[in-house]
Amino acid sequence: MDLIKFIEDPGRHQRLAEEVGTTKAWLWQIATGWRGKRASTDLAMKIESASRGIGPEAVSRSVLRPDIWPAGDMQAANDPEGPSADAAEEG
């Protein structure tokens, strides 16, 4: 599931922001790619984990950052930490 669809529900939007320690506005900016905003590797992993618990489907980190975790890349999918450094902005 992509992030914009996940946060269409106001309750999920609020809960996800609380669980990952960011704002609803930042999640919206990431979801829409507003002015090139995207999740850091750390935030992408937090979103994936928290959204899995919130449901109905998880927002995969490979959907949030396909430049780091390409879909179908089994090595990336099995790497819980991801890359050691990330130059992306974080909210």
Rank of each mutant, 00 (worst) to 15 (best):
residue 61 R to C: 04
residue 89 E to P: 00
residue 36 G to K: 00
residue 66 P to D: 03
residue 31 A to W: 05
residue 19 E to H: 11
residue 47 I to V: 15
residue 33 G to E: 02
residue 45 M to Y: 12
residue 61 R to G: 06
residue 48 E to P: 12
residue 87 A to T: 12
residue 88 A to T: 12
residue 67 D to V: 04
residue 17 A to H: 10
residue 37 K to R: 15
residue 73 D to N: 15
residue 62 S to R: 04
residue 48 E to W: 11
residue 1 M to G: 04
residue 17 A to P: 10
residue 72 G to F: 08
residue 33 G to C: 04
residue 19 E to G: 07
residue 17 A to K: 11
residue 18 E to P: 05
residue 68 I to L: 06
residue 16 L to S: 07
residue 38 R to S: 13
residue 70 P to E: 01
residue 16 L to F: 08
residue 91 G to Y: 00
residue 39 A to G: 07
residue 20 V to A: 08
residue 64 L to Q: 02
residue 29 Q to N: 13
residue 24 K to D: 08
residue 52 R to D: 09
residue 10 P to E: 11
residue 68 I to D: 00
residue 45 M to R: 15
residue 87 A to S: 14
residue 54 I to V: 09
residue 28 W to K: 11
residue 83 P to E: 13
residue 81 E to G: 13
residue 38 R to T: 12
residue 34 W to G: 08
residue 65 R to A: 02
residue 68 I to F: 00
residue 86 D to N: 12
residue 59 V to L: 06
residue 37 K to E: 07
residue 46 K to A: 14
residue 42 D to I: 13
residue 87 A to M: 13
residue 3 L to I: 08
residue 18 E to R: 13
residue 8 E to L: 04
residue 13 H to Q: 11
residue 49 S to I: 09
residue 76 A to R: 13
residue 40 S to T: 03
residue 13 H to R: 15
residue 52 R to A: 13
residue 51 S to H: 07
residue 40 S to M: 03
residue 6 F to M: 04
residue 87 A to D: 14
residue 20 V to R: 08
residue 64 L to R: 01
residue 72 G to I: 04
residue 53 G to Y: 10
